[in-house]
Amino acid sequence: MPEPAELRAGDTAIEVSGLNKSFGATKALDQLDLNVRTGEVHGFLGPNGAGKSTTIRVLLGLLRADSGRATVLGGHPWHDAVALHRRLAYVPGDVNLWPTLTGGEAIDLFARLRGGFDRRRRNELCERFDLDPTKKGRTYSKGNRQKVAIVAALASDVELLILDEPTAGLDPLMETIFAECIREVKGAGRTVLLSSHILAQVEALGDRVSIIRQGHIVESGTLSELRHLTRTSVEAETHRSADGVRDLPGVHNVAVSNGKVHFDVDTEHLDTAVGHLHGLGIRSLVSQPPTLEQLFMRHYGEELAEATNGRGR
C-alpha cells in the first residue's frame, strides 16, 4: 500500500531496542531488541510467559516500558498511540467480548473505531471463517470469539497487523483459512507481527523469525539464516561402509548398522558430508532439513538444565 504514511515509516515497521519492563520483582522484558521490516510476516516465537504479550502490549501503548526505545510505524507507541492505532490492527490471544453485543456488532465496532473498513470484505470474511455475526458475545465458543477479532482486524484497511497467538482455539480448517488470509495480507504489502508458539504455523507463514526467551530475543533472522545454525539429519544406505563419516568436520551423532548410516551434520558442512557418501556409492538417501522445532529446542532445551536466571545461548 503505497501511502505517504508508509514512506515516513521507511522500511522498518517496528524497531525496538533495549526494552525493559518489570512487574514488581518479575522481569518481563530484559533488554529486548526486535526489528520488523515493512511488508514482511515476522514470526515472534516463544513459549507461554516468555514476554510475547508484554512486548505487544508495549507496542500498542497499553503498557509503559520502564526503559528502552520502541518505534512503531515511525511513531512512539505511547505518545502517538491514537495516530498509530489508525494504521494498525490487533488480535489479542484471548478475546473477551461483551455478553450483550452480537459478534457482528463487535466486529463493526472494532473496525470503525480504527477508522475505515470495507463492509464487503467484512461480510466475505465472516463467510470464509463460517462465523454467524448475529449471535450474542456470551454464546460464542473460544474459537468463535477469536474469529470475531480476526475478522475485525482483517477487514480493517491498515498497514500493520499485530497478532498475538491469533489461532488459539481455531480448528485446523480455520487455521488453513487464516494462513490463506495472512498470505493475502502479505501480498497486499502489509506487515504482520505474528506471535505464536505453534512452530509449523510460523514456519509456513513467516519471512523472518525472532525467538524470545525470558524477555530477551535470543535469535533473529530469516528462516534460512536460522537453518544455517542448525543441523540437517541424514540417513543413507551405502555400498561401502560409511564409518569414515565420523572423521568429517561438523558431523555428530553417527550411528552405523547393516550398511545404514545415520548422522546429523552442521548445515555448512552438508556438502562435504554428502560428497563423502557419494564416494561410497549411495543406494538410498533421506535428508531432513532442520525444523524450527529443533532450533527452538536448542534454546529451550538448555533451559531445563540451565539456571533460570541465565540468559540464552
Partner: peptide, 26 residues
C-alpha cells in the same frame, strides 16, 4: 434463552458515548 441480534453495528455504537450507553443500558 438468548436470541440472535443484529448482524451489524449501528452508527451510534461506534461513537464512544454510544458504546458506553449500550453497555450501561441494562
Amino acid at each position: 434463552q438468548s436470541r440472535p441480534g443484529k448482524a451489524a453495528a449501528s452508527d451510534v455504537l461506534a461513537h464512544p458515548i454510544g458504546l458506553a450507553l449500550r453497555l450501561h443500558r441494562g
